[in-house]
Design a protein around this nucleic acid. Structure first.
Lengths: 225, 225
DNA sequence: GTATCATTTGATTTATTTTTTAAAAAAATA
DNA sequence: TATTTTTTTAAAAAATAAATCAAATGATAC
């Protein structure tokens, strides 16, 4: 619960703003991905289930409004629009196409955080929905299930701790001791056994894992997407 | 639920604005009461449970911010603040003291309605259906019967409370304490026994439950499909 | 006041999870 | 290719949590 981060997608064509916002959100304990336009954003949302999308209205290609309108028809990830002008008409339009909130540029970073927390709190009934999707796997850390194809597999408490940790830092190599510390296991082979068990649940072919891989002599790493 | 109107309290010291907003909200099928200052508002909230309070920040006496801060400590009726200035600092302050949203004056009436709907949609407690069917089970919480195959089984009051709660959030894991708190049971085996009893009623094979499942170390979850 | 139904409780059984073991497989190294 | 090291995995054993049962107690209705 403690160390799960909400995953936010920032979509803006201005590199400077994107990096600034990313940096700031990182500092505030969010996991951040970025996209430079609607197409890019759309590709990313196919792979990852974000908790929130922050979207600039003015973008080359499909605008933020258009993206919102299309996207919201299919998925209801909350969307926060960034509008350049403070005009009511544009704000209204944003809400009408389905955005959950908007923020007028320029804004203070602090206000962005407040808005984001506000949305996340409301839309997830005070809890972040902890659902991660990659490949044909869906992991729901709240409901403690892994959906693979059409199976629903239970996640037990040890598995949850490990997944939580690894999902929070995809691509990071976790040494055995690190995983062991997490769950108070230090018995040599125990970790291996849990990893095997997890692989059976999240991998299509557990013998040659795609996501939860071994780094020989180092530990394990979880690759999503 | 068709003819239920949300009851909104408008708090503003400007008669003109109060009446305008009231008129507009009336047209949009809201039930509206008004108050001219924080004291007045506070008195009214003692008597009526509003669905939403729309509050001007600038008021003689206690300001909207102060009202919000005090009020939110006790009751969590949603509050929408009206700010005269568009300055980020004031907007931030509003959210920090607990307001659910703010709107910068001047605003278009239409935008107010959107904002209000937005808040109400998010906060309104979903009214649960009184008759739920899933699999070959039908649960009638009004008549207090469970129909399984061609049996008609009684639901007692404890069972009703639990079913009501769980049916309202299918897929959510309820911790034992949560269930216990609901019905003031906290004795060691009591929950288990009730769960066993419920399973006998709603499950085809109570020993390997399909709907009312155990999440070891966590609690219970009800899956309906 | 008795009958009926609901709840509590401890003892016991059952089920699930975790750890250990050990052998096989895979990878690295000589 | 042979040897060593590390990882994988199945299966057994141990630990822990939950389910069940039955008897006792309590509550409510008639």
């Amino acid at each position: 619960m403690k160390n799960f981060k909400a995953h936010i997608l920032i979509v803006d064509d201005d590199d400077r703003i994107r990096d600034l916002v990313k940096e700031y959100l990182n500092q505030n304990n969010y996991l951040v991905s970025t996209a430079r336009d609607s197409n890019d954003a759309f590709e990313k949302t196919k792979v990852i289930k974000f908790d929130l999308i922050v979207l600039d209205i003015m973008m080359p290609g499909k605008t933020g409004l258009e993206f919102t309108q299309d996207y919201k028809k299919k998925i209801d990830t909350p969307i926060l629009l960034l509008t350049a002008k403070g005009e009511p008409s544009e704000r209204i339009e944003g809400l009408e196409v389905g955005a959950d909130d908007y923020l007028t540029k320029p804004f203070e970073p602090k206000e962005l955080i407040l808005r984001i927390n506000n949305i996340l709190n409301k839309t997830k009934s005070l809890e972040i929905k902890r659902v991660i999707e990659f490949g044909n796997i869906k992991i729901d850390l709240k409901k403690l299930f892994i959906f693979k194809d059409d199976q629903r597999l239970k996640i037990n408490s040890t598995e949850k701790l490990i997944l939580e940790k690894m999902l929070n830092s995809p691509g990071k190599i976790f040494k055995r001791e690190e995983i062991a510390g997490l769950i108070d296991l230090d018995k040599e082979r125990s970790i291996d056994v849990i990893v095997t068990r997890l692989r059976k649940k999240i991998e299509e072919t557990p013998k040659s894992p795609k996501y939860l891989q071994t780094i020989r002599g180092e530990g394990y790493v979880l690759w999503i997407e």
